[in-house]
Design a binder for these strands. Structure first.
Lengths: 338, 338
DNA sequence: CTGAAAGCGCTTACAG
DNA sequence: CTGAAAGCGCTTACAG
């Protein structure tokens, strides 16, 4: 096995006949080096296969060009789609993503502390939220946090979410307009604020209208099979519209309706999902759903994060975006208004 | 805004009344420190909220505890499932994953070079392969590479793949046993070796048997909609079994068969997918498919990588694992043999 | 434009 | 067990 000597700026400097400073300047955009020196350095670097050690660089510049991405929900396909898009866009901005996964062994706080040990320049937390104490640690170290799909309450962080209040109202108005009256609401973890908020807004519009009734409000349902099971548990309540907090859940309800109860969709039962996963438009699914402005959310969160990295005094923002209702074949066609 | 002074081992040492060496030793498992010193350091560290800067540490230890993960295919759900599992398992082994995404702007080689600048301890490349030159760079720097789902030809790397040769034969024998005779093969990029190898092995068994015929061999088909379109392009060739290189493609074919051509599956047309995505067992899909030993592949690749990090002389391995055929309802039931 | 020197935050022989 | 000192590979005022 060959002796693999690490190539450093020193070796390049010697070969090019210049100082290490000159080598460093050659690899620092905008630094003052003559074209001639630069060329000598570049050819020496190429010959030796030199690339700067960014770890050593970051020690002195205090910029790691590393963004920590905390993922907690891998079930929903739109979160993995987000991960891809984050990775690509941050790469384009000359950042790398270092991934932290939340699971039984490691919670959000532990993930954040790990990421901070790597001196990340910023942290994006998808679909989860740290405790106030951990957030305070980030403030102390001046590491900005962006929360995706979670509101930042009491913690000093930017948040990018849907406007769930508005969305709940939109859904309620749509439901009433289409003539539905008996609603079943299905969502995941009870504790998630955004889902609660949407539900609250939905309920309020329904109540105020005096025209409909929420016949079931089920929580803790996640994924296709849970959805199918959830329908079984509430079909006797005779809802005419089921609203789900995930397309996968909705597709489970759809399968359950058709296969387990021989219901015709949307005549006997209408279904609305959430997320607009690719599978939702396949074959006979044609699920009516809510499309999230994913790329828009990603862009806004990245823009804020990078701006905040460059300006520590930038105030935190709460960005709420509007979702789009996609009506396919699991809800009845809207009446044309005259 | 508060002055956010970085807390270093120096501050902790002063508060604890010891040297920086003692602080370092306290955070180095197995280092020789008295219980008393350790305790003083720990309470000072807690008070100040100190955690070692792993970037600085890695500069001297030459271990970043960072594993580069190169992702090229985000379409297939089993690759994102892999990403999650890698992240969790590497975290458990005290490594962090730094993610590099291959796309139009950045190819595999560029990704690897970026990762090497971060002094990653090892690189896992999912579903892609570097050029010989770039692989040589890794060898020079002693950075081990593991290829997932790609064979390492001519490059010094470990590879973990399915045994595609065996799988092609299994599929061919199964197809003949079930009585199918006219086969259509659909896969993604032509250049992918594993798919070619599987196809080759399949063809050979069929030819040798003298009993069947490959009526279509289509490449460049990726995802549900492509699959549905591919069926349209070859339905006139009257295949009785379609084999796909991805479940998504297969589900597209399934939808196409039922919805566009009113074919009964599996009576008029049988379909076998690849990957066993969750959606494949939903509702009326019940797709027959190939289940990859994903966790097994991940474990083997991580084990090799970590072993290789600790022992630079460990020889590269080619690990080929056996896939499992899952027969659901898109193929006819096997005859019971007497 | 250029180089010598200091320093980023850590670990680790080395000597005690 | 403990601390002073050297050094990891880099950047950046500073002086020329």
């Amino acid at each position: 096995m060959k002796k693999n000597k690490q190539i450093t700026s020193y070796e390049v400097a010697v070969l090019a006949g210049v100082s290490r400073s000159a080598v460093s300047r050659t690899f620092t955009p905008g630094a003052s080096v003559s074209a001639k020196t630069k060329e000598k350095v570049m050819s020496a670097a190429d010959e030796l296969g030199y690339r700067p050690n960014v770890i050593a660089r970051s020690l002195i510049t205090k910029k790691s060009q590393l963004i920590g991405l905390v993922m907690s929900d891998w079930l929903n396909p739109y979160y993995t789609a987000m991960l891809k898009s984050y990775s690509e866009k941050l790469q384009d901005a000359n950042y790398q993503v270092i991934l932290a996964t939340v699971n039984k062994g490691r919670d959000v706080d532990a993930s954040i502390k790990f990421l901070m040990q790597y001196q990340v320049d910023g942290i994006i937390i998808v679909s989860a939220s740290p405790t106030i104490e951990t957030a305070a640690l980030c403030v102390q170290k001046n590491t900005p946090i962006v929360l995706l799909n979670r509101r930042a309450n009491k913690i000093n962080a930017c948040s990018v979410t849907l406007n769930h209040n508005e969305l709940g109202q939109q859904l309620a108005n749509l439901a009433l307009d289409l003539g539905y009256r008996r609603f079943a609401l299905i969502r995941g973890q009870e504790t998630i604020k955004t889902g609660r908020q949407r539900t609250y807004a939905f309920n309020k519009v329904i109540e105020k209208s005096g025209k409909g009734k929420v016949v079931a409000n089920i929580v803790g349902v996640l994924g296709h099979d849970d959805g199918r099971a959830a329908l079984a548990g509430m079909v006797k309540l005779k809802p005419d519209l089921v609203l789900c907090s995930s397309d996968l859940t909705a597709l489970g309800v759809l399968d359950g309706a058709r296969l387990d109860y021989d219901l015709e969709v949307p005549k006997d039962l209408a279904i609305i999902g959430f997320g607009d996963a690719p599978v939702s438009s396949w074959g006979l699914n044609h699920l009516s759903t809510v499309r999230l402005p994913i790329e828009h959310m990603i862009d806004r969160s990245i823009n804020y994060l990078l701006a905040r990295i460059n300006d520590p005094y930038l105030a935190p923002e709460s960005i709420a975006l509007t979702a789009e209702l996609i009506l396919r074949d699991t809800t009845q066609k809207p009446k044309v208004k005259h």
